[in-house]
């Protein structure tokens, strides 16, 4: 588990291009599958396609980068969970620490993304982009301090 946690940050900054296709696609497909389930109308696939298209066209490049990171975190989290289910949760502390690290980081990144999103400007009158990033760093620091303490 500790390996995975420390491996969270580097890949994205190092090699964003390859992961974009690798990580983003599966997460998208799960999303469309989820949202399509209760849709009894004729064409869930076309709706999903429309969502995807509008996402690709309307999202700025930097936000996409953030999304890739989030997708990566989701994958890491799922991997840890699957490992825990298959191989047992013996050092439960370690599993929890690793899993909370991914969940917490995901949530913080999502918050950052929301605060940076231009459409949400009115919602956050007092949060400038710099402030949002500072918040993000502060939250992540606390998160990882607790994780390292908890991991044993």
């Amino acid at each position: 588990m500790p390996l995975k946690k420390s491996a969270i940050a580097p890949p994205v900054t190092a090699d964003p291009e390859t992961i974009t296709t690798a990580a983003a696609t599966p997460s998208k497909s799960t999303k469309s599958a989820k949202s399509a389930k209760p849709v009894s109308t004729s064409n869930p696939i076309s709706i999903a396609n429309a969502v995807w298209d509008s996402y690709v066209t309307s999202t700025p490049q930097r936000t996409k980068l953030v999304d890739v990171f989030m997708g990566f975190l989701v994958v890491t989290g799922i991997l840890q969970f699957v490992y825990c289910v298959i191989a047992g949760n013996y050092p439960f502390n370690a599993f929890l620490a690793g899993f909370s690290a991914t969940v917490g980081q995901f949530v913080l990144t999502a918050s950052l993304r929301m605060q940076l999103h231009t459409a949400n400007k009115a919602e956050f009158p007092e949060v400038s982009p710099e402030r949002a990033f500072a918040d993000f760093i502060f939250g992540s620091l606390i998160l990882h301090v607790f994780c390292t303490n908890f991991i044993n």
């Binding site: 909370s100 605060q115 994780c147």
Partner: peptide, 28 residues
């Protein structure tokens, strides 16, 4: 629901829960 609620609640829960598990008496 607003993004503010999301940011406030998620950051509180994710950090707070992890933090609360550090107390041995609370544990898991």
């Amino acid at each position: 629901y607003s993004p503010r609620l999301y940011v406030g609640y998620s950051s509180w829960y994710a950090l707070g829960t992890l933090a609360s598990m550090q107390i041995p008496f609370v544990g898991f």
